[in-house]
Nucleic acid binder design. Sequence first.
DNA 1: TCTGGGGTCCTAGGACCC
DNA 2: TCTGGGGTCCTAGGACCC
Length: 404
Amino acid sequence: MDAFFASIELLRYPQLKGLPVVIGGGRRKVDELLLAAEPERATRFIPVADFPRLLDYVGRGVITTATYAARQFGVGSAMGMMKAAKLCPQAIVLPVDFEEVRKYSRLFKSTITEIAPVMQDRGVDEVYIDFTDVPGGQREGGRVLARLIQKAIFEKTGLTCSVGVAPNKLLAKMASEFNKPNGISIVHAEDLQTQIWPLNVRKINGIGPKAGEKLARLHIHTIGELAAQDPGWLVDNFGKATGAWMHEAAWGRDERPVVTESEPVSMSRETTFDRDLHAVRDKASLSAIFTELCVKLAEDLQRKGYVGKTIGIKLRYDNFKSVTRDQTLDSYTADAKTIRHTAGLCLKRVPLELRLRLLGVRVGTLLKASEAAKAQSTESKTVSAGVPVAQAAIDFIATTDQLF
DNA sequence: TCTGGGGTCCTAGGACCC
DNA sequence: TCTGGGGTCCTAGGACCC
């Protein structure tokens, strides 16, 4: 399989590109941030010097993305606003416009599927593509097609994207990192030792902070060092599945297909409060937020046509420790009241002495609403046809009895 | 001055059934 | 009175990703 991994840069507004700009901060506290919600217009009227600075930012947000000029200062995605302000106080801060992001994300993906239909969604700004069967997909090892897609995306969105081409998804994703933000990198199986092995193990998609740290403690830093380990030893240290997978990954082996369609497993809504709340002292506001989350979640489910039967809550204490509780119902639901009631029962099973910073509600074990309706009617048929079912069971027992 | 929101997948123990 | 395996479902937590 030949895979393609493409990711786009969601930062628009070329006039800001050379400046240290960060985007993020769900809870804006600086008034000017609102003004800056339309930077294209704003830059025409407001001198760049007057843009809101990270320095003035107060709140609990994190950074969604940053220009390369800002990244020079060590500022990056998922970093707390306050930490970023320390590193680069002069950076301009802009709010996220989620609607706009989704719009560009859809455009990015539809542009790709028009050229190469076998595409796997990997979030707003990333996709895998299998172009084995795309006409001309093999020319120059995929470079021709990659250029074509890159050009089409730029024409439709004005956004640049980086592309990696390799024999599988694992390597394609790594390759896409080589030439950011607007490059094309091709990695062949033979390039494993020269291009992949010198990289840090953390570059493998799936080795995160914890596994990276543990590997470092075991004196394994590069992918090459990981590849040199005995698989059995890796299994002993990381468990059967992870150990074996690590070994395969280090050798650039990955058989996962590009999956074009998948059903969601769960949906959730959560929120971090502006200030930590106490279950007793802030009962009223907490309860209102709780209900609101359930209502929004029910709307999400209904809008997308899903029902679920495992209702759960998540909360995070002021010490950042999280707990979850869930309960599985007998039947599927997308009803706000049912969700609220069941989530309420879950909440009662959790210690509430510490103050809370986050509350979330989740519905899992999802089923398409249409399929649930079908299952429901078959189930009632089974129930109404209860006698024949019981009869069949008895008959079967009778037959097995005869075996002994 | 701490650390968003939306997901997926894995593990592990216990209940329950055969 | 002690004791198999195997399978599935439920629950809680945690790692990881975008």
